[in-house]
């Protein structure tokens, strides 16, 4: 059995060294796969803040993933067509600069999460799952019918966006950018988990009355967690769009929400690196099983079923030998 802390370190080291090895051995596809895994992991780490810590089963995190994606798509689309995003009352131009795009993606996601969270947190349990799903579907259908930005066909961006001082066209450079962001977010997550806010959130999930009696509002705690979580997933969406240089309504679909949730369950709920292990496993399964059989989803389904039924702590629980991290 490996201690969870050592496992976390091992996972991050492996996730970093494999693409670097691939770079020196000229295997660009491996780098793309690793970048994909890192971005999925980022989205799932985001969801894990509200799902793992706050106990909020959001079936609509594709909303933020999609918003991030479209923030990148729309800004870059205007930059590449040299048309302004808005002329009146003041001029807004498109941009190809990653930091600006990230900022826009995160701020938009924050407002969306605040709005959705405020409405959804009036409900709980299954109703919460369903209302977040409904918001996801709303934006999915909206993006399909929003013809000025591609509608059902989505938007293609011809050249990857720029990051000051780094040539993002080299795959390994873009990988490193994503990896650094992931590490920062994981560190933030670890910090939140130990912070007074994280502890309060944890007890708001377990016994809301206790949090109330010490004078904190559990709904506010959950709302803050939901917003932080949405912001991170939104950032992941912007990076994902940049990886593919393409955004489409699929990013808003409920299958996307489901997949982000799968990463967490596969890895282990409320574990620091659970989502990362889950996302890496998913991408590897997708690649290797997809190579063996067109029907690889059957195997994925069976694997998921086995994990849910027999290993409730996910892969991390299995490896560290400790069933579940809480509850």
């Amino acid at each position: 059995m490996i201690r969870e802390r050592n496992l976390n370190a091992l996972v991050l080291i492996l996730l970093f060294t494999v693409p670097i090895w691939a770079f020196f051995n000229d295997q660009p596809f491996t780098i793309t796969l690793a970048t994909r895994a890192v971005i999925f992991a980022l989205a799932a780490v985001g969801l894990n803040i509200c799902l793992g810590l706050g106990g909020l089963v959001s079936f609509g995190h594709a909303v933020f993933f999609g918003i991030g994606g479209y923030a990148m798509g729309i800004l870059a689309h205007h930059a590449q067509t040299y048309t302004p995003l808005m002329e009146a009352p003041f001029l807004i131009e498109g941009t190809k600069s990653m930091p600006v795009i990230w900022l826009v993606a995160m701020i938009t996601s924050a407002f969306a999460a605040l709005f959705i969270g405020m409405l959804s947190l009036r409900t709980a349990g299954v109703y919460f799952i369903m209302i977040t799903l409904a918001f996801g579907q709303m934006l999915y259908f909206f993006s399909i019918s929003w013809t000025s930005y591609g509608g059902e066909d989505g938007l293609s961006i011809y050249v990857r966006n720029e990051f000051p001082g780094i040539n993002t066209l080299v795959p390994v450079n873009f990988f490193i950018i994503c990896f650094v962001i992931l590490c920062l977010v994981v560190a933030l997550n670890a910090f939140i988990k130990k912070s007074p806010f994280g502890l309060a959130l944890n007890s708001a999930r377990q016994v809301p009355q206790r949090v109330l009696t010490v004078g904190l509002n559990p709904t506010h705690l959950k709302l803050v967690a939901f917003v932080i979580s949405g912001v991170i997933t939104g950032l992941a969406g912007a990076l994902f769009a940049d990886l593919n240089r393409f955004v489409s309504p699929t990013m808003f679909s409920w299958q996307t929400s489901g997949e982000i949730m799968i990463f967490i369950i596969l890895g282990g709920v409320a574990r620091l690196c659970g989502p990362i292990i889950g996302a890496v496993t998913f991408v590897m399964l997708e690649h290797f099983l997809g190579g063996i059989s067109d029907f690889w989803h059957i195997y994925l389904g069976i694997l998921l079923l086995v994990i849910v039924l027999f290993a409730p702590g996910g892969l991390v629980g299995l490896i560290t030998g400790r069933g579940i991290s809480h509850d």
Partner: peptide, 17 residues
């Protein structure tokens, strides 16, 4: 509910494929 959502999501994959 989380486990239920996941397990039945897995069933969708198995049935569809």
């Amino acid at each position: 509910h989380l486990d239920q959502v996941l397990a039945t999501f897995a069933l969708i994959l198995i049935f569809s494929e």
